[in-house]
């Protein structure tokens, strides 16, 4: 079989994995873009979601309920970061790092050990690496995760359109102005962090089912993958997608593109030791392009001076 056919055959797996990370990136989008905070909690809360989902499922809880509990657990981690940041006045990045660090111990205690298997043979899981081929459409991992993405975007679109959602976005745009309008910005920041980490935990719960285990190391470096998805999505679809819902969709697509490229790299047999370096460079380049465009290639608008 030639490598091209093998790449094409391997794509569905990469798409499913990319969509799961896309959900994680949507969670990150709320803090990174809307609240204007770089929240490093996600490296830990992803595993928290996975651990809670796996342990509760093994304990006999129905899977949907276990996933709801995973989301709640994720929201709690966001709450902790929020309290660190607002109530205790710790800078946002440091607050996230502190929570992430403590979550390592918490996750170990949730699972009781470093790695816990959740086999698709013993449990009726929603998604699995095996549900990529030769399964009915409604069971296909891509279909299931895509449904999650669509519902999630619909809920977020509605939420950020409500009065409260608008005040949350205002908090991220201009903190002082929002406070002047009588918005409780500290409260909003905490709610935003909770929402974000809840979504990240949901993606962790899906990922654990997809790969068949939860591992205490699984969220390590998640923030870079999430940022890569946001940035790639914005760079590729930014011109076409203006609506908020489509912007979130672009983030999910960003995750898919990231993993397709990753899969091609693996199919080509490039030394995977270099992968982390490559992905960091991809993110750096995508981050630099808008800046270079502005600095070196921008044409001054006509009449710019008069309007200024």
């Amino acid at each position: 079989m030639s490598i091209i056919t093998s790449i094409i055959n391997a794509l569905p797996g990469a798409v499913a994995q990319g969509l799961i990370w896309g959900i994680m990136a949507i969670g990150l989008y709320i803090t990174y873009k809307l609240l204007n905070i770089s929240d490093l909690t996600v490296d830990g809360s992803m595993c928290t979601g996975a651990a809670v989902c796996v342990m509760l499922t093994i304990a006999g809880m129905p899977l949907p309920l276990a996933m709801v509990c995973a989301v709640i657990a994720g929201m709690l981690t966001g709450f902790v970061t929020g309290i660190f940041h607002t109530f205790m006045g710790i800078p946002a990045i440091l607050a996230g790092i502190l929570t992430q660090l403590s979550l390592y111990s918490v996750n170990l205690k949730i699972m009781g050990k470093a790695n816990q298997a959740l086999s698709v043979r013993n449990y009726d899981l929603l998604v699995s690496l095996q549900y990529i081929r030769n399964v009915p459409l409604w069971k296909n991992a891509i279909f299931v995760v895509a449904a999650f993405v669509v519902v999630l975007i619909a809920i977020l679109y509605w939420f950020f359109g409500t009065e409260y959602g608008c005040s949350l976005r205002a908090t991220g745009s201009n903190l002082n102005m929002s406070r002047a309008q009588g918005i409780n910005t500290s409260f909003n920041t905490v709610i935003g962090l909770m929402l974000s980490n809840g979504i990240v935990a949901l993606s962790g719960a899906l990922l654990a089912q997809y790969q068949g285990f939860a591992d205490v190391q699984m969220g390590r470096g998640a923030i870079v993958i999430g940022l890569a998805a946001i940035i790639i999505g914005n760079a590729v679809f930014g011109k076409i997608f203006k609506n908020f819902a489509f912007k979130l969709l672009a983030v999910a697509f960003g995750g898919v593109i990231y993993y397709i490229v990753y899969q091609i790299v693996i199919c080509l047999g490039i030394d995977p030791d270099l992968l982390k370096l490559l992905s960091a460079m991809v993110v750096a380049v995508f981050l630099a392009i808008p800046y270079w465009k502005k600095t070196y290639f921008s044409v001054p608008k006509k009449g710019g001076n008069q309007n200024a």
Partner: peptide, 21 residues
């Protein structure tokens, strides 16, 4: 022979690659 260098995400993609082949 493919090396995941300790990363579960790479390993998942590699396994996916093996299965499709």
């Amino acid at each position: 022979k493919q090396h995941a260098s300790g990363d579960a995400n790479s390993a998942t993609l590699i396994a996916n690659n093996f299965v499709t082949q």
